[in-house]
Simulated scan of single mutants.
Amino acid sequence: MTVVLTVIGVIVLLWGVLFLVWPRLVFAPVYYPKRDAFHLHPERFRGLEQVCGGNVVLEGIVYEPESPRCTVFYFGGKEQDSVALVGKLSERFPDWRIIAFNYRGYGCSGGRPGERVLLEDAVALVTYAKERFGPLMLMGYSLGGSVAAYAASRTDVTQLILVAPFYDIPSLARRKVPFFPGWLMRCRFETARYLGGVSAPVSIFASRDDEIVPLEQSLALKEKAPSLAVHKVYSGYNHAEILGSERFIADVSKVC
C-alpha cells in the first residue's frame, strides 16, 4: 500500500511540475540580431508594426520583390524569429511577397506568448495584411501551422500551407509523457479542429524522418482538411531541415 501511494504521489507531483512549466515547453521566444538583408536591401524590406489586444506592439516585416507572383503571410515555429527569417525566405522564394510578424515575446514584439493571444493576434494580423496587401496565402511551420490554420478558419485566404504540422499539442505530448492527462495541458493548439473550418485549399508537407512530429500526425491531419490539395511526404529531413530543403522549396513554389 505504501509503495502504491508513493507511486501515485510521484505521478501527481510530476503532473504539477509539468502543469507549471507547460508554457515553456510550447513557447521558446527568441531574437535573431543578425538581420543583414534588411540593411543591405532597404528597397526590398520594409518594417511593419501593429498594435494588438492590450495595446501590445508586434514587430513585422514585408519583403517586396519587383513583381510579386503571390503574397504569403508566414507564421513561424516555436524557436523562430519570424521577422528575421524573412531574410532567408526571400532567398528561397525571391518572387513572393512575404509578410511576417513576431509572436508576443518573440524578436522585438512586446508582451508574453500564450495560446489565446497568439490565435487572436493571428486573425487581427491577417485581416490587417489583407486590407493593406490584398489576397493572401498563409504558410505555417510547426507551431505556426496551428496558428495559421486557426487564422485561415476565421478569415478569407486563398490557400493554407502547413509545413511539419502537428495534429494537436495533447496528442504530440503523449508521445513524450504517455500518462500526462490532456485536461492538465494549458496550451492545446488543436490544428485538426481548426482545419475543419478552413474552406481554402490546404497543402501539407511533412517528413517521415521528423524526430519531433511523427508522420502519423500528418497522415491523421490530412483527413481533417475539407479542401486538401497537396499532401507531400519526404525522406531524409528532420524537423528543422524540411523548411529549407530543395525538394520542399521546389514543390511549394508550384502552389503559389
Rank of each mutant, 00 (worst) to 15 (best):
E64C: 09
R154D: 01
L172T: 08
G140S: 03
L125F: 07
L118W: 01
C70S: 12
A164V: 15
K176T: 04
A122V: 08
E131G: 15
P113W: 04
E79S: 15
V83N: 11
E115F: 01
L143D: 00
G76A: 12
T158N: 08
G53F: 08
A84V: 09
F179D: 00
R174K: 14
N102A: 12
G60V: 06
G76I: 11
G110H: 04
K78P: 00
G77N: 11
F101P: 08
F101C: 11
E91L: 15
L89M: 14
G87M: 06
M137P: 02
R97S: 09
E79Y: 12
E79F: 11
P165E: 06
V51N: 04
S109Y: 02
E120Q: 14
P181H: 04
L118A: 13
G87T: 14
R92V: 10
R154Y: 03
Y128Q: 11
L136V: 11
N55S: 12
A148I: 05
R46F: 03
C108Y: 10
R46V: 04
V62I: 11
Y150H: 14
G114Q: 02
R97C: 10
W96L: 08
S142H: 09
L184F: 13
Y103M: 09
S90N: 11
V86E: 06
A148N: 05
E131K: 12
C52Y: 00
G140T: 03
R92G: 10
T71W: 05
Y150T: 03
A148H: 04
R116F: 09
P113N: 10
E79A: 15
S67Q: 14
P65I: 14
D156L: 07
G107L: 07
Y74S: 10
E43T: 14
F38P: 13
L136T: 07
G107W: 01
S90H: 09
F166S: 03
A148L: 07
Y141E: 10
E66D: 15
I169A: 00
R69S: 12
F133K: 05
C108D: 12
R175C: 07
T158V: 14
A124R: 13
G134S: 08
S142R: 09
F45Q: 03
A124T: 12
G114H: 02
Y141A: 08
Y141D: 08
A164R: 05
T155N: 03
S171P: 00
R46K: 12
V177E: 01
T155M: 02
W96F: 15
G47V: 01
D81S: 13
V57M: 12
E43H: 10
P165L: 07
R69F: 00
Y74V: 13
D95F: 02
R69L: 09
H39A: 11
G76W: 07
